[in-house]
Nucleic acid binder design. Structure first.
Lengths: 112, 112
DNA sequence: CTAATATATGAGTACTTGTTCATATATAGA
DNA sequence: TCTATATATGAACAAGTACTCATATATTAG
């Protein structure tokens, strides 16, 4: 009978160890923004400056619709912000943290 | 007639700007490891030390099967390594970079 | 005004994913 | 050996996702 086996290892009793589900979900949502190749490429482009949907579609060689859908996803995640100028809508990174995560993992990918 | 509009903005010609699809896919795969709340909580626990499947299931209050399936996913992504000891299989973080990404986003989540 | 351009968005669809359930394998203890 | 324990794994299923296509909206040019 044992309700909290530790397989012979000792639990650090004062430590959190278990992330509360809410924080875990929040972190997972952030990483989800970067868990798709198209969004990674969009963020790569936006880390150089702001771009309109039209140019992003050309740069990534994808349809405007596909890009626009992904941008709505990134907007919902508060990763990007936008600015209207005439017929164009310019998108830019809104969250500095995303840029850090992106850069850090880019360096890792490049010599891994 | 224009095949490379820049919406009035100038392209930094010497810059990459566009991430090659292969690198983008590689980065997306890494972030995918952290894009699920269950995996985030597993990684949170493993960042404190190694744990066997049995204990992880108790800590997260989930079935052994669900935990085991996720661990196979993390193994495939080379995020965790394992060590057999008797009936138990102890898992630990294999990739130091994951710990960095995890810690960085945890700090962000905690005062965001 | 009309026509063209830039973007947004809903529906549809193929694909992926996270879990449960049942079952299989492996090790330890009696 | 037989039984209980620890983990792994395949099938099934519901939910989510990334795209295409068609269409809608908004702005500019003529």
């Amino acid at each position: 009978m044992h309700t909290s086996s530790v397989c012979g290892h000792s639990l650090p009793e004062s430590e959190p160890l278990l992330l509360d589900p809410e924080t875990a979900a929040q972190m997972a949502a952030l990483f989800k923004a970067l868990s798709d190749p198209t969004r990674v490429r969009i963020i790569a482009a936006l880390s150089e400056g702001e771009w309109c949907v039209y140019d992003l579609a050309q740069i990534l060689e994808m349809t405007h619709s596909a890009i626009s859908h992904q941008l709505q996803t990134l907007r919902a995640l508060r990763v990007v912000r936008y600015r209207k100028e005439g017929r164009h809508v310019f998108y830019a990174l809104d969250d500095e943290h995303i840029r850090d995560l992106f850069q850090q993992s880019l360096e890792h990918a490049r010599h891994a």
